[in-house]
Nucleic acid binder design. Structure first.
Lengths: 350, 350
DNA sequence: CCCCCAGTAGAAAGCGCTTACCGTCCCGGG
DNA sequence: CCCGGGACGGTAAGCGCTTTCTACTGGGGG
């Protein structure tokens, strides 16, 4: 049925071993022989059987990328960056890799399930993106799975999440805490004193770090008292921002600024404010986080913290392929950059 | 090193064949035996070797999904939908499948290369998303590759693109032409007579169909004459929209509406107009296409055509797995829905 | 002039799994 | 009481490739 190595070998008048060697190029083959083989490959339109080589060589050229939500550009950008990096053939070791993008939907069970699938496929590496769940049971289960993956020869890299306690997988992390601190500090400098916070989902590192940064800035300004009353929790979606903004407004009508967990939430908050006839930033300033492409196109353009998502994805990809060795400690930290735009301004006088 | 089927067999005191049968569940195994095997699997933390089964069974549970740009929610949503659909175990045939998302970046060569990789992995199905390139040479090459894939046992499904001439792969397509026609008709009804069009990249079916729909509406209103003068080409990115809007404005200062190839382009156009001090929709109306999540959050909210991206992805996934048989003709057409929002209004009087 | 080695190519043993093909056992009907 | 057959389980032959080990060749040094 399908063309096999053996067919090519016959056609080229050599042994299967030689064909394999030509194709993998890690053994000397005389020029003339090589050409004959390559011609035969062309003529027969031979395509290597991946599973067979994976079986024989005990490695595959698949790299798993776990994301919470591939429809969200936050993850899409990182996933795309990882893929573009690993898609390039490496000089030393192996050709281009294929990215297997797995959408966990934020579910811990699916995260684990996907890791099993990836181990089953003998993925050469696995990149986990986005914030991690802060749940002891899940952390343990995850560490176990990842440990087994590593034992099976896969590289494990974290991207956009902090290192996993107790393990030492290389990680490319964002300094969410410091970014959030700067953002809130910026608002405080503008003169805001009553700031609401729209937090992300519970028990996520990203949520916690951003919230901590926010409160750190608040505390530095002596405003820690109101913090928890003015914090509303939701998920990272637009409607959470919409509902959360309304809730904040009802808790504290005198609010002059809303700090959202991310850009999407901020957009939802903006929509709620508009619907209430509240002007941005004249009446209330709003800030986001991530600086996704659409943040600059919101009206007013969103003040936010830019995260180097693409760069992080590329580095994670390089680490996953061993093209780059992690620094001592294994953690690459990416700083966010405060982007001050039109959605933040000084509070209304009076 | 790694735990194999044989290890499990020994532990359970049965033969490897029995273990395989328990795991694949397509052969009667007595309850007691089955339990013993399952326990052994648990205890040894056995994980099937995917390549080995793929080799032996001549199929893998990988499904390829080709996208132009995974960072673009247009593709992210479809890819996510495909994955969520194929991730569910099927009753009749096989467990959950893994999606291999391949980012072509719009490059025809990479499209072909990825297809080869997928064939090498013996992917069980391949879903091609997004508009197709209208280039004879590429069409032929693509048809060839896909034909070989199909011959190798893979299902091929097109999602968001028209059927491939000369082949009869099932396709889930969007009625871009009709959507565009309705959109422009809407503007014409509002009284616009000088409409600019920001077209997508050359030689893409999506670009052409949307443009044709636009012109069809124009022609129906007897406005065909100006059409090509008021059409500017670019890619599907924001900056193309920005530059294109400025270009249109200089070509025709009396413009009252700009129809963009998609939402992202529309946002870029809006930004350009704002920077020029042109009010939307008071001075110029702007429309998008796709109704990506951010469209509703633009200010003003974008009038656009909603495409059922998620639904299309799900159906493509079902077709890819053979859970659904394509209708006669093999084409499922999804209609867009005109979403009239704040960015379109009647032209300024005078 | 012979031997040895660098340079190449082939033979063959798996890699871990699936599955066709056979035994074996036990039940019920003749 | 014997035999046929259904229900299970085992045996073994690959699936297509990689890779070790072996074999052969020719040329240069002893």
């Amino acid at each position: 049925m399908a063309v096999t190595l053996a067919d090519v070998a016959v056609r080229a008048g050599v042994s299967a071993a030689t064909v394999s060697r030509v194709l993998n190029g890690n053994y000397p083959v005389a020029g003339a022989t090589r050409n004959r083989v390559l011609r035969a490959v062309e003529e027969l339109e031979y395509v290597v059987n991946g599973p067979a080589s994976a079986l024989a060589a005990a490695t595959s050229d698949l790299v798993g990328v776990l994301v919470n939500d591939i429809a969200d550009p936050f993850f899409g950008i990182m996933a795309g960056a990882v893929q573009s990096e690993i898609g390039e053939p490496t000089a030393d070791r192996g050709g281009p890799k294929l990215a297997v993008v797995c959408n966990t939907g934020g579910s811990p069970e699916r995260e684990l399930t996907f890791l099993t699938h990836l181990q089953r496929q003998r993925a050469g590496a696995v990149v986990l993106t986005g914030g991690a769940l802060e749940d002891e049971a899940h952390r343990t289960a995850l560490a176990g799975r990842l440990g087994r993956l590593e034992a099976a020869g896969a590289r494990v890299v974290l991207c956009g999440r902090p290192p996993l306690e107790g393990s030492d997988f290389p990680a490319v992390t964002f300094d969410n805490r410091e970014g959030a601190r700067q953002l809130t500090a910026h608002l405080l400098e503008l003169g805001h004193r009553r700031l609401g916070y729209l937090a992300g989902p519970q028990a996520r590192t990203t949520t916690r770090h951003r919230l901590e940064g926010h409160r750190e800035a608040l505390a530095a300004a002596g405003l820690a008292g109101d913090a928890s009353r003015l914090t509303v929790r939701g998920d990272y979606g637009r409607s959470a921002g919409y509902a959360g903004a309304l809730e904040l407004l009802s808790r504290e009508p005198g609010l002059t600024a809303i700090v959202a967990a991310n850009d999407t939430v901020a957009l939802g908050a903006c929509a709620a404010l508009r619907d209430r006839g509240v002007r941005i930033p004249d009446d209330v300033s709003v800030t986001g986080f991530d600086d996704l492409p659409f943040a600059v196109d919101a009206t007013p353009a969103l003040t936010t913290v830019r995260l180097p998502l693409h760069e992080a994805g590329v580095r994670a990809g390089r680490l996953a392929l061993g093209r780059e060795t992690p620094p001592a400690g294994g953690v690459v930290t990416c700083e966010g950059e405060l982007m001050v735009r039109a959605s933040s301004a000084g509070p209304r006088r009076g």
